[in-house]
Design a protein around this nucleic acid. Structure first.
Lengths: 121, 121
DNA sequence: CTTGACCTTGACCCTGGGGGCAGGGTTTAG
DNA sequence: CTAAACCCTGCCCCCAGGGTCAAGGTCAAG
């Protein structure tokens, strides 16, 4: 199958597929005319990458998941490296939520302060 | 004063100062040799920009605050436009926290699922 | 055989807030 | 006089692609 079919079937853009390839996540063969040729397995890979990116992982961080698939597993997340990646991402999210929560407090304080200053003048 | 002095006094890098200028937040005069020349007021502006960026505003969003300062106010955040910008940023942070909280749940579910699958095999 | 619609290719510029580096000119202290 | 420290502009890099382009390939209908 060609890149447009793959993209449509996996629910991403052609541009995204080419980007994944540039990141080393796909290695399609080429037809005689230079067109990229994909297997049915590549659809699974692209869907997985899409799902992982939407969880906030970087393209690079999806690597262990794809390797897990390529190793013959039905699921990309049953390998130890995948579990580690999940845990790392959860920790990252927790850190980010804590940061934003602090920031929220700071902003609210600043707003209150600025409002009070105005009514006092 | 020159760019290095300004940067040191405001606690940012020379590169950052030039970037702020490229975003229209500073308009230094030039010495005969082409060096940028800053006023003492510019230190205040740069400090303000730095503080606002650390609150997650974009350089563009700092614009109303700088205008407020230039209008002669002692504080950059006492103008109506500044209050609006604060409120917008708070709403943004709230949205982001909500997103991350949902994401956290998804990730934890996926992790649990993958772990269980492993112990079951 | 040709036309037109659609597909694919690689290549370029853009995002935000700068960091890093190159290759120059200027100034200041010793 | 020279070396260090400063300043200038301009270019490439990040991340996950989006937008646009010119050029060429494919496939059906007429």
């Amino acid at each position: 199958m060609r890149i447009g079919d793959l993209a449509a079937e996996a629910g991403v853009t052609v541009k995204a597929v080419r980007y994944y390839e540039s990141q080393g996540l796909l290695k399609p063969r080429r037809e005689a005319n230079g067109y990229r040729a994909y297997s049915a397995e590549d659809v699974i890979v692209v869907r997985e990458v899409k799902a992982l990116l939407s969880l906030g992982l970087t393209a690079e961080q999806t690597y262990p998941f794809i390797e897990c698939l390529r190793a013959g597993n039905d699921r990309a997340d049953v390998c130890p490296a995948s579990l580690t990646a999940y845990r790392a991402r959860i920790a990252e999210v927790d850190r980010r939520i804590a940061e934003l929560t602090e920031l929220r407090i700071k902003l609210a304080d600043l707003l209150t302060d600025a409002e009070n200053w105005r009514t006092q003048r």
